[in-house]
Design a protein around this nucleic acid. Structure first.
Lengths: 199, 199
DNA sequence: CAAGTTACAAGTTTTGACATCTGTTACCAA
DNA sequence: TTGGTAACAGATGTCAAAACTTGTAACTTG
């Protein structure tokens, strides 16, 4: 008795995302997902080797949607690197604030993966670090940012702004003052990275 | 039937600390504490209004022990403020690393209080911020650090070093590279705060 | 044989009866 | 009156049995 729709990986991911949103990451089971698709849960296992893999695939897809919006900012060569760095850091915060507000269940699912040291989390961080490195390299190239090693500097900036992107601080992002706090940290960091205008 | 030792608040705190260490914050009960003191648990309630208050008092005492060691560094006017700032930030990290290693049960108890938004946690942060403000004010006074408002600058520095003192990052402090990472963040921050030697 | 099913073992969560803990009150002794 | 006890109600935690979940395997169908 084959399903009317042939059941591809994408349909499973979409259904899982709905179930995750409805039930939350702790209560969502693969039987739920199968039921939503009108198939037995064993059918899901034909496409994904484990529940963990399924969760990772859903979360990865979800994260990738926002990564691209940030990549546009990071690569926008019309904006001077100094300002682009500031804008990008604010955008990272804004994206995460929006996610946690609009999609708390999927955000929680991401948190679980991060705690489990899944590659989804480390890849996401690597992704962001790559974008940050690109901005700083642009600044080094046009002489507006002072750095010996764009990647090392990106790491330092990332560490210094952990409060504004690290999952562990998600609760603090609801506080109204965070944006201003990030701005002040940016001011100090850019002061340190700045090439003096009148040497 | 009065206890041989008259049972003062200090004895209760000491006993609670032992029980907390032995059983951990989840399993430690006030009945356990009373048993260790040879009294009924109602006697403990004559001195502390609730289990929460007892836990807070123990944790506060525990935190205060280390606060004083840090205060010595913050107030050491023999060390130039720029270097003192760096040393102090490293000391904060070192103190917390030591605590989590040597006293994981009490550290966990502190974590529970912080999560519950107890004043113990906010007071501890205010304490550290006060010390940081003092160092920066010293630097402003002798002209070695550039700042309009020592307290505001202390906030910024504190935010930028959250990864190295915020409880949420405790797990990362075990990683061997943290000290070096903090050093690099210090380099960048001090660059931003530095008064140029040759203007 | 591709795409699904049913059946099932092993592990995990829920359930519900029972025990323990917290915080209060009424009482006792020096 | 200070410093304690014993007894209690309601909340919380524990533990074993039952129900569910995960993942696998042998089976069915176009």
């Amino acid at each position: 008795m084959p399903a009317r729709t042939p059941l591809d990986a994408n349909a499973i991911l979409a259904a899982t995302e709905q179930i995750l949103r409805r039930h939350g990451p702790d209560k969502a089971t693969v039987v739920d997902v199968a039921r939503a698709l009108g198939v037995s849960h064993a059918a899901v296992y034909k496409h994904f080797p484990s529940k963990q893999a399924l969760r990772e695939a859903v979360t990865r897809r979800w994260l990738d949607r926002n990564r691209d919006a940030l990549a546009v900012i990071a690569a926008d060569s019309a904006v001077p690197p100094v300002q682009r760095l500031r804008t990008w850091l604010h955008a990272v915060l804004a994206v995460k604030q929006a996610k946690i507000r609009e999609d708390p269940e999927l955000f929680a699912a991401y948190g679980i993966l991060a705690a489990a040291h899944s590659s989804v989390a480390t890849d996401h961080v690597a992704d962001l670090l790559g974008q940050l490195t690109a901005i700083i390299a642009d600044g080094a190239a046009d002489g507006s940012l002072r750095t010996d090693d764009a990647e090392a500097t990106a790491h330092v900036v990332f560490n210094a702004t952990a409060k504004f992107h690290h999952l562990a601080h998600a609760a603090e992002w609801q506080h109204p003052g965070v944006g201003a706090e990030l701005d002040e940290v940016c001011n100090l960091l850019l002061e340190g990275l700045h090439v003096p205008t009148s040497p």
